[in-house]
Design a protein around this nucleic acid. Structure first.
Lengths: 131, 131
DNA sequence: CTGTTATTGTTATATTATAACAATGTAATA
DNA sequence: TATTACATTGTTATAATATAACAATAACAG
């Protein structure tokens, strides 16, 4: 039976663990460097784990930064409907979990009346600390 | 006087021209290939033009695709408040110009009451043609 | 003109990501 | 147990995306 992934493989656990320990997004090669002591030596090992973790919603990719952050929002498991705020000064990234926002975007219709339940939104600004 | 850029340099025109002729996003190295006959031989020449064109709002970067598309939306000159729909099957990309959406997002406040006038939103789905 | 700044050209290299295939592990069952 | 099937891992090489650094040239204000 084609099982639906409910557990994580060894490498996926290792990669998720290091990302969860970071409050901020991590780049793939920084992850690679950090997991080399655990035996993951080559990029494909890291990228495969990242791909799967993104797919199952455990982490998200910050597209504008080519970096990966752990999901802190139980609501977005698997939905791939994500929103972030990014400080352009200190590069601090926060996941936004606003049910109002996600409802608005999931219900948004383009000119042809089409809806999209999958989206990625990145807000940019200067955070309070940096102001 | 530190002039505010109102004109385009030679290379910027060449790069913008090729992007505007394409209805779909173009990748940097595809642009490079296409402008080599015009004398732009090396990546930095293309990337510099791309950077400036993005900065002044003539083109936008589709972050999830590492590709660049001409701006068709007079309203977003310089604001860097952008929204796109992307078909995950045929990779067709459309810029969304909805004043309702842009108002909603520009007025959105996060938990700390912070607003962001700069954002990038990418919607994903399967377009009508591909359904 | 002349000094200043923007732009361009050029080489090299950094960063991000995937292809391809071999080896190993896992789990169901004949 | 042996067998099969499939997922995962390991490994090498390379593709794709992007920038650093500096030299050469052009554009322009004073």
């Amino acid at each position: 039976m084609a099982q639906k992934k409910e557990y994580l493989s060894k490498n996926q656990k290792i990669v998720l663990d290091i990302i969860e320990k970071s409050s901020q997004p991590m780049k793939a090669y920084s992850i690679l460097f950090n997991v080399q002591k655990k035996g993951l030596k080559a990029p494909p090992q890291v990228y495969r784990a990242l791909d799967k973790l993104v797919e199952i919603g455990k982490i998200h990719k910050i597209e504008s930064r080519n970096a990966f952050i752990a999901c802190r929002n139980s609501a977005c498991t698997i939905t791939n409907a994500t929103a972030f705020s990014i400080c352009e000064s200190c590069e601090d990234v926060k996941e936004i979990s606003s049910s109002k926002l996600s409802k608005y975007l999931s219900n948004f219709q383009d000119k042809e009346g089409m809806k999209y339940n999958k989206y990625n939104l990145e807000f940019f600004g200067i955070c309070k600390k940096c102001k």
